Amino acid sequence: MPRLTISHITSYSYRQPVRFGEHRLMVRPRESYDQHLVSATLKIDPEPADVRWLQDVFGNSVAIATIDRPSTRLVIDSEVHVDHRPTKLQHVDIEDYARIYPFTYSSEEMPDLLRSIERQHVDPQRQIDTWARRFVKSGGETDTLSMLSDMTAAIKRDFTYVARPEKGTQTPIETLAKRKGTCRDYAMLMIEAVRALGFAARFVSGYLYSASQDDRHLGGGNTHAWVRVYLPGSGWVEFDPTNGIVGSRGLIRVAVARDIYQAVPISGTWSGFPGSFLDMGVSVDISVDRSAEPSVLSRKTS
């Protein structure tokens, strides 16, 4: 079980002092059977008048910061220590009735999964549906896990990863047409595709790290995005289409939500003279305790 130290610093700079509205921060990893939060420190400059914590409807930890002093900069510095026991593909155990696609979720689970099955993007020409059906065998049985793994691998293989620091996400149809995008674009494409096949899926925001020298991941050094699909017998299983990962190897969950806009790491407002905003920078450093497992340091500053 490797121990990770994750430093996530977000900084904003302005030409002249501005006032800040309430800021909503989602930078604290979720506690679960495969990741244990050992410690967490959150520093904000200028020092806020108040920071209160809450859990949202999905159980994510959210800090609400109230900053009452004008400033020419805002720095949000999160450092956490996490013990990670990643799950792997061979650990995914699906109930017999769901191992072959198609299947129907049980009557006990369906009411809680319905909103995560609902499509969120208009697809009038059924382009996403058509693409998703490519992974269903036309003859013979379709293994559920193999189908989802093949879709994950296909996005990594057939699409070009392009970093895009600007806010916003392409629609799944745009990503399908352009054959390129960011991790969040790929996550939204896969979510819509598996929902088109009747699966419950959720968006995940978190961190990506290389657990060994053999790992060569895309999308590291910043916050990362991937997908969770509900599979009876194993529950919510991670699929990272940017890197072709099935299971949680190298993935640390921070926020899980039905829609990408419910899992924004940092959001807030400021007020001041037009044109005051200068720059935003994000730095994520992840180090792995080498006494626990061989590792590399993932770093990128934008």
Rank of each mutant, 00 (worst) to 15 (best):
P86R: 02
R85W: 14
K178Q: 14
D215A: 03
F135G: 14
D129S: 11
I100R: 13
L218Y: 15
I100Y: 07
G244C: 09
V162K: 07
Y261P: 00
K137M: 07
Y97G: 04
K43D: 07
I245P: 07
D143S: 14
H23P: 03
F135P: 11
E166G: 09
S298K: 03
R164K: 14
A196Y: 03
A154F: 10
L114M: 12
A187R: 06
S107W: 02
T72C: 11
E192Q: 10
T104M: 08
A263S: 15
A257L: 09
R52E: 10
I286Q: 08
R164V: 13
E238A: 14
E174N: 09
V51K: 02
K300I: 04
D279N: 15
P102Y: 02
T142I: 10
G59C: 11
I245R: 08
D279K: 13
K88D: 08
P29Q: 08
A255F: 09
V284E: 11
N243H: 04
A200G: 01
A196I: 05
G168I: 13
T242P: 01
M147Y: 03
A49W: 08
R3W: 02
R24F: 12
F273Y: 10
T171N: 02
G247N: 04
F159C: 13
R184I: 14
S116C: 12
M280F: 07
S248K: 03
F203M: 05
A196G: 00
D259L: 02
L74M: 02
H91C: 00
T142D: 07
H91L: 04
Q90Y: 11
R73H: 15
V264D: 02
A163Q: 13
R157C: 04
R24L: 12
G140A: 07
D279P: 00
W53D: 05
R99I: 09
Q90R: 10
G140F: 06
V122T: 15
H8F: 04
K137Y: 12
G233I: 07
I94P: 06
I67M: 07
V75F: 01
L148A: 08
N60T: 10
D289M: 10
R28N: 01
H8P: 03
W226R: 03
S298C: 13
Q262N: 15
D259F: 07
E22S: 14
L89A: 07
S149G: 14
V227G: 03
A132K: 01
P2F: 00
E141M: 15
Q127M: 15
M1A: 11
A255D: 13
Y12G: 03
A65E: 02
S71Q: 02
P241D: 11
Q16M: 09
W236K: 09
L218T: 01
S146W: 12
D285S: 13
T182V: 06
Q127V: 06
G59E: 11
D259H: 05
R133M: 15
R28F: 03
R69Q: 13
A132S: 08
R184V: 14
T104V: 14
V82A: 04
D214C: 11
I191W: 04
A255C: 12
P48F: 00
R290D: 00
G247T: 09
S11L: 02
L148F: 09
L42W: 00
A154C: 14
V246F: 07
G235Y: 03
V75M: 05
L37A: 05
